[in-house]
């Protein structure tokens, strides 16, 4: 049985990855999960300088999921290169680094620094975080802005670039096509869906940021639909995510057209879930006598 998957020329040993922002740089979850078993660790977003993030409360529970407004707190690229990358290099897993910035120049700086590190196999470009005032989603909600940043970063990047798309748009295929036209090597989707929660007893917003990104099992049907639509619209490989909690969920994304999947909020609920999902995918392939994972990608039919 071959679980390998190829994304923009990079081979990952299996399709199970971690969604950016939910897994740090793997350190915290390495107490629970054997990182060697994962297809890749996708790191928390990193900027050119340290970011303090948003005030608290930053997280809230909602029915079947959660809201977060962390605001991309990160230690900056210098610390990341000195501490996080060497940590991940101890493991036999793919390293995909999520890159964020307030301006195009910020992104370029981080992309160029990461170009010095051959262990980083791919860059995921965060143009979809809904919780910061500058940058991120500002580049991901208008097709021309997304085209421009993709085009610029492609010129500076040594590794393939994967644009992480926001679901907070009218037509995600328009964004996918803009990223493809700009030279993206891959797409990942979906980032969180902007939401809000109000504490009716205090008559206040639960999150200090008022709004936050919704994730968790409740958003999965939206994410599967968007992955399917995107897979129909562009030729780029897709890493699918949004509410994956079980192997069955992951297989839905793969059948909809994802070459790999990322597990996010579920890590908070079951820290062992990535390994369990991988095992469940193997069981499914065994049950249906699927020899190559690749044969499942986009295999849904009418």
């Amino acid at each position: 049985m071959n679980l390998q998957t190829e994304i923009a020329g990079v081979v990952y040993k299996n399709p199970v990855m971690t969604a950016s922002g939910t897994f740090g740089s793997g350190m915290e979850y390495s107490e629970f999960v054997d990182l060697n078993k994962l297809g890749a660790v996708v790191t928390k977003g990193v900027a050119n300088v340290p970011w303090p993030g948003n005030p608290t409360p930053r997280v809230a529970e909602v029915y079947g999921g959660m809201l977060n407004a962390i605001g991309l707190q990160n230690p900056g690229i210098d610390v990341f290169m000195e501490r996080d990358i060497p940590f991940l290099k101890q493991y036999d897993t793919g390293i995909i680094v999520n890159v964020c910035g307030k301006s195009v120049e910020d992104y370029v700086e981080v992309v160029e620094r990461l170009g010095e590190e051959p262990a980083v196999s791919m860059l995921e470009i965060n143009v979809s975080c809904p919780n910061v005032k500058e940058g991120a989603i500002a580049f991901g909600q208008k097709a021309d802005a997304l085209y421009n940043i993709t085009n610029t970063l492609k010129k500076h990047a040594k590794q393939p670039i994967m644009m992480k798309l926001s679901p907070n748009v009218t037509d995600i295929t328009e964004m996918a096509r803009a990223a493809e036209a700009g030279g993206a090597d891959a797409l990942s989707l979906i980032n969180t869906i902007t939401g809000m929660k109000i504490d009716i007893h205090r008559r206040k917003f639960v999150l200090a940021n008022k709004t936050g990104g919704m994730s968790g099992p409740a958003i999965k049907p939206i994410a599967v639909r968007m992955v399917y639509q995107t897979a129909q619209a562009v030729k780029l490989p897709i890493v699918g995510m949004g509410g994956i909690a079980t192997a069955e969920d992951a297989i839905e994304f793969i059948l909809a057209g994802a070459s790999a999947v990322s597990v996010g909020a579920m890590n908070f609920i079951n820290p062992y879930c990535t390994e369990e999902i991988l095992k469940g995918i193997e069981d499914y392939m065994r049950m249906y006598r699927v020899e190559n994972l690749k044969d499942l990608v986009g295999a849904v039919h009418e």
């Binding site: 915290e28 409360p57 930053r58 977060n68 707190q73």
Partner: peptide
């Protein structure tokens, strides 16, 4: 105390 999600230091929710 603060609202938490992961409880293990990964999500940066409770600072």
């Amino acid at each position: 105390e603060e609202r938490m999600a992961c409880g293990v230091g990964a999500c940066l929710g409770c600072v």
